[in-house]
Simulated scan of single mutants.
Amino acid sequence: MTASGPRPPKLGGTHLANLHTFLVAARHLSFTRAADELCLTASAVSHRMARLEDELKLKLFHRLARKVELTDDGERIFQAMQLTMDTLSEAVQERAHAQLQGQLCLYARPSIAQCWLVPRLGDFMARYPGIQLDVRVGNEPVDYRTRRIDLALCYSNGEHPGLRSRRLMPERIAPVCSPDYARAHDLTGQPARLSHCTVLHDVAAWDNIAFDTEWRLWLQAAGQNLELPERFMTFDRSDLSTLAAINQAGVAMGREQLVRKRVQDGELVLPFGGFQGVMNYGYYLVHPAHEAMPKRLQVLIDWLIEQADN
């Protein structure tokens, strides 16, 4: 006869209510913030979690001095519940005639949102009027657990541990400035004359970088053994850096997808030649893993890929 441990409990109504509390607490990693969302006290949330752990015979949280963290069992159950909620949400949104309905939150870096994404959104809304798209922008790292973001459009090298990542389009970079600035500083074909210029930096190009990383990657890719000048100006958006360059504030690092039209229109020039690819950096679509991809999210991803191919 094989020995066996205690039989796992069957889930009932009380368990489901406490599991919902667990889902909120696990998403916030805070009993206090979970209590605010659920209109409970932090003590009540803590008691519910203790009772749930006792009933399930599982430890779900590590309770630290000022925060809580999920145990391995807690993380496993949280991921399973997230998938379940995705499935339920999709079922609620389904219609007998298979129309696409519901909300989607798309998060993007400000520069790609302004220069590339937003001008195209009219086409998406014309095709999918039943989808309510909530577009958010920012430079901070995306926290899918607390912010309810369905999809992020990121400028990165595609490395997003624990998430699904797909390259939407490549990116190449090159210094750009106004034609008048290039003439005034005799820059055309002479990168060494950067030492007489003000260099404009996007300090938030992607997560956790030095303020001059994008410029240094270009120097390496272009084979330029130069020191960057001491005169510089910093921005937290590439489009603002580019706008400053148009208005003769200095030389910015231009991203091809964002500045191509301004170069074609003559607002900007490439004083040191064409764009350079930098490793795998480009624009990526990033989202949590889904056992079954919600249809409205899939059509958004497909639409973005179509736009990138045009």
Rank of each mutant, 00 (worst) to 15 (best):
V259N: 02
G274I: 11
L270G: 06
R148A: 15
R7A: 13
R296M: 06
Q248L: 04
H62Q: 08
L200I: 15
T14S: 10
E55A: 14
Y144V: 00
L187F: 06
H47M: 12
D134P: 02
Q101F: 14
S30F: 07
L219H: 10
L58D: 04
T188G: 02
E306N: 04
W303C: 00
A65S: 08
S4I: 11
N18F: 12
R193C: 01
K10T: 13
N208C: 12
L168S: 01
A244T: 05
E37R: 15
A184Y: 08
L121Q: 07
D180I: 09
R296A: 03
I149P: 03
N280M: 13
T242Y: 01
D54W: 06
H28R: 12
Q82F: 08
F232Y: 14
V137D: 03
V135C: 06
C154F: 06
A222H: 09
D180N: 13
A289H: 15
L23D: 05
L304E: 00
E140Q: 15
A3P: 10
N280I: 04
R255L: 11
R76Y: 10
V286D: 01
M81Q: 09
S178P: 02
F61E: 02
R216V: 09
V251P: 02
V135M: 05
G12A: 05
R183Y: 12
I305W: 00
S111W: 01
L88K: 02
I112F: 08
L19G: 02
A3W: 12
F275M: 05
P170N: 13
D143H: 13
L304I: 02
R63H: 05
D180L: 12
W218S: 01
A192G: 14
V199H: 01
L23Y: 13
E267S: 10
R216T: 10
A42P: 11
A192T: 13
G162F: 08
T87G: 04
Q101W: 13
I246S: 00
R63C: 03
D302V: 04
I149Y: 06
L240D: 10
R148V: 05
M49R: 00
S111D: 14
R237H: 09
T41R: 04
D86A: 09
Q82K: 13
M233H: 07
N208W: 07
Y284D: 01
W218N: 01
F31Q: 03
A108H: 00
I77K: 06
T32R: 07
T32V: 08
G277D: 04
V299L: 09
A249M: 12
L56V: 07
L88M: 04
A17K: 12
S156L: 04
L217P: 00
A205M: 13
E267A: 11
T87C: 05
S156H: 13
G274C: 09
L11N: 07
Q220R: 14
S43W: 10
L64T: 05
L38G: 09
S4P: 02
W206F: 14
Y181K: 04
L194Y: 03
I301E: 10
W303A: 00
S46H: 10
L133T: 03
V203F: 11
E75P: 00
T41Y: 12
A249Q: 14
P110D: 09
L104T: 01
L187E: 02
